[in-house]
Simulated assay, not measured.
Amino acid sequence: MSQERALRIAYSPCPNDTFVFHAWAHGLVPGAPPIDVTFADIDITNGMAERGEFDVLKVSYAVLPYVLDEYALLPCGGALGRGCGPLVLTRDEGTRKGADLSGRTVAVPSERSTAYLLFRLWAAAEVPGGVGEIVVLPFHEIMPAVRDGRVDAGLVIHEARFTYQDYGLHKLADMGEHWERTTSLPIPLGAIIAKRSLGEERLRELAAAARTSVHMAWDEPEASRGYVMEHAQEMDPKVADQHIGLYVNEFTSALGEEGYAAVRGLLTRAAAEGLVPPLGPHALEL
């Protein structure tokens, strides 16, 4: 009997992803199909999705309008939440208003990221005349660029929420706070998608495997610690724990009605601003 082909999956080395997928990646989820893991930052996985390269991917919700013909959104395993949005950072403590960014250079981690959509929606409301040049940098290079004066401000994600003060930087605005205040919805960040060509039955199996992997991680958090820290890029264990606590929550287990409303809300607003193509009425369905 031939061995089942491992599905090719790509997700980031960030603690929330390694925590969520530890059990599945190590063959601990009963009945789950085997997976062959590639680690890549979210901007890379977004490009992989647009090229249709992998079976399963962790991507930005912002890329969904470009890939949903080929991929289906799984209802679990991703990252949504409250109080977990991207931040705009500056070097000058006196910078306190969006208007201070008018015409300024801002570094962002990707123009196809959820963070960028949230930033553009915030800037449309808070920055008269709009920001100036947008510079795309890998997220780990953004805070040094702001600190060294190479850009006027930076849009940061991930563990930067917990470490930006180490760079002597100051928070200008929280994109998540703006989103929650204006919509009362959780913040959609990262999605798990799988190829529609796998078939509806297999897609449901993948969703069940992701959900079980999440719950196994919650039940035995120490089991994944070695895997998490191995890929956490020299992150302090306390920061890794904060990262997991913030980004792995009830929406990781199941998007639910509120989670789907948040995703539709983000992409509908972004489409209205001309930032992404409009979604079809059934585009988010499995």
Score class of each variant (00 low, 15 high):
Ala25Gly: 09
Tyr71Cys: 01
Gly265Leu: 07
Gly52Tyr: 03
Ala25Ile: 06
His231Ser: 10
Tyr167Gly: 08
Leu266Asp: 11
Glu222Trp: 00
Thr95Gln: 01
Arg150Asn: 11
Arg211Leu: 12
Ile157Phe: 09
Asn16Ser: 15
Gly245Asp: 13
Ile157Trp: 02
Leu275Met: 12
Asp219Ile: 02
Glu53Pro: 03
Pro15Leu: 07
Val88Cys: 04
Ala270Gln: 11
Leu74His: 03
Pro65Arg: 05
Ser102His: 00
Ile187His: 00
Cys84Ile: 15
Ser110Glu: 07
Glu141Ala: 12
Thr252Ile: 02
Arg202Pro: 06
Pro186Gln: 14
Ala25Phe: 11
Leu266Trp: 08
Arg204Gly: 00
Ser60Leu: 11
Leu275Glu: 01
Pro281His: 10
Arg204Ala: 15
Leu74Gly: 02
Glu180Met: 12
Trp218Asp: 11
Asp219Asn: 00
Leu255Cys: 09
Ala217Thr: 05
Asp36Met: 10
Gly274Pro: 04
Cys14Asp: 15
Leu189Trp: 05
Glu205Arg: 11
Ala6Glu: 15
Gly226Leu: 09
Arg204Thr: 01
Arg8Pro: 04
Lys58Asn: 12
Trp218Met: 13
His26Pro: 02
Ser253Arg: 11
Met229Asn: 03
Gln3Phe: 13
Lys171Thr: 14
Lys195Arg: 14
Thr212Asp: 04
Lys97Cys: 09
Leu118His: 08
Tyr167Met: 14
Arg196Leu: 10
Gln3Arg: 14
Val263Ser: 01
Glu200Arg: 12
Leu198Gln: 03
Arg96His: 07
Gly245Pro: 07
Tyr66Glu: 13
Asn249Leu: 01
Asp166Thr: 15
Ser197Pro: 02
Arg161Asn: 06
Leu74Ser: 00
Ile134His: 00
Leu169Asp: 07
Gly176Lys: 01
Glu70His: 09
Glu141Ser: 11
Glu53Ala: 06
Phe19Arg: 06
Pro65Lys: 06
Ala32Arg: 06
Val63Thr: 06
Leu267Met: 09
Pro13Ile: 09
Ala25Glu: 14
Asp43Tyr: 14
Ser102Trp: 03
Gly81Phe: 10
Arg211Phe: 00
Tyr116Cys: 08
Glu257Met: 08
Val156Pro: 01
Thr163Trp: 12
Arg96Phe: 08
Gly47His: 06
Leu284Val: 05
Tyr227Cys: 08
Leu118Cys: 03
Val135Ile: 15
Ala72Pro: 04
Ser12Ala: 13
Val146Met: 03
Gly85Pro: 11
Leu117Phe: 02
Phe119Thr: 08
Glu70Asp: 12
Ala232Asn: 01
Ser213Trp: 07
Pro30Thr: 03
Tyr164Phe: 15
Val106Arg: 04
Ser213Cys: 09
Pro221Ala: 10
Asp17Gly: 07
Pro144Asp: 05
Ser213His: 08
Asp41Gly: 11
Asp166Leu: 14
Arg82Val: 15
Gly52Leu: 09
Arg202Gly: 10
His26Gln: 07
Val59Pro: 08
Gly168Glu: 14
Met229Arg: 01
Gly94Tyr: 04
Ala123Asn: 08
Glu159Asp: 12
Pro278Phe: 00
Arg96Ser: 09
Leu117Val: 06
Ile35Arg: 03
Leu87Asn: 07
Leu206Phe: 10
Pro278Ile: 13
Asp41Thr: 15
Tyr61Ile: 14
Met216Phe: 06
Arg204Asp: 13
